[in-house]
Amino acid sequence: MCTVSYIPTADGFFLTSNRDEKKTRSNAIHPTVYNNGEFKIIYPKDPDGKGTWIAINTKGIAAVLLNGAFVKYKSKSYYLKSRGLVLMEVINTHSPKDELATMILDGIEPFTLIICSKQSLIEFRWDGVLRHIKNLDPKKAGIWSSATLYDEHAVLKRTEWFKRWQLQKPSPLEDEVMDFHHFAGEACFEGLIINREKVKTVSVTCLALKEEKISITYNDLQNETIYAITEVLY
C-alpha cells in the first residue's frame, strides 16, 4: 500500500496503487465482486488482515490505503484492528467522510486514505492520535507515497517523475497509467516497482470510473496474472 496516483478524466478518474509488502506476507486473493445489499463493491482481499487496501463500489466511490500518515514511526506489537478493515467500513457507506469523522480509531496503526468520486477527492490521515482531513480539487491529479517506506527525498523524486509523465500524457488511457506504475523510476530500489531485502511490490491495481461504469484491473506480480472486472453504476 505504498504508491498511489489519482488522475481525473473527462467522465471519471483513475485511482492506481502499487502494493509494497513484506515478502513473508500471504499472497492476496484476486478481486471479486461483493454485494453489501445496497450496492456492490469490488476489491482484492488480504488473507492476513481480512480487509483490503483498495476498493471501488457501484456508487462510484473508490478508496485506497497507504501505510503511515506523515512520518516513519515505530510499529507496536499489537493493534486493535487492521487498517484494511477500516477501509472496508468506509467503502461500505454512502458517505466515507462522515464515517471517518466519527469512527473510533484509537488503537489503530497510522494510515492515509485517499477517497474519490466524480465530485470529490479526500485525503484522510490518522497519525495515531489525531485525524487530518483535506478536501482536494478532484480536477487535479496527485501522487502519494507511504511514509513508512519512502523518505522526503524519495517522495519528491516520485512527484517529479509523475509531473514529467503528465506533460507527456495529459489525457492518459488506462494502459498508459498502468505503464507508469510499472516502469517509472530509475532503479529497482527507487522505482515504483521495488524489490528490497524484505519488501517488494506484489501487485499493481487500477480502479477506473468511466462512462457510468466502474472497473478494476489487477496485476498480480507474484503469480504473473492479470484480473479485470467491470460493473455498472447504480
Results as ranks from 00 to 15, higher is better:
L85C: 01
F124E: 02
I115G: 11
L130C: 13
C116H: 07
L167P: 06
E152L: 14
L66E: 06
Y78P: 06
K134Y: 13
I91A: 06
E89D: 15
V155Y: 07
G128F: 04
L167F: 12
K81A: 10
V64N: 10
L136V: 07
D127E: 06
I108D: 06
A69I: 00
Y78T: 15
R125P: 05
H94C: 12
V129I: 15
L105M: 09
L167D: 11
D151T: 13
K97M: 13
P110M: 03
A62T: 08
P96N: 04
L113F: 09
G107D: 04
Y150H: 08
K76G: 05
V155R: 04
D106P: 05
S145M: 05
I133G: 06
Y79R: 08
V155H: 03
D137W: 00
A101H: 09
G84A: 07
R125E: 12
H132L: 05
L167N: 13
K72P: 02
S145I: 09
D151V: 12
T148L: 03
W144P: 04
K157N: 14
N135E: 14
H153R: 15
W165P: 07
K74V: 13
P110V: 08
F124K: 11
I122W: 12
K72V: 08
S120T: 13
D137S: 10
L80K: 15
A63I: 08
T159V: 10
L113G: 03
N135H: 14
K134D: 15
I133N: 07
F70I: 10
S146T: 00
R125I: 05
R164F: 09
F70S: 13
V71Q: 14
M103H: 04
H153T: 15
C116N: 11
T159S: 09
L156F: 07
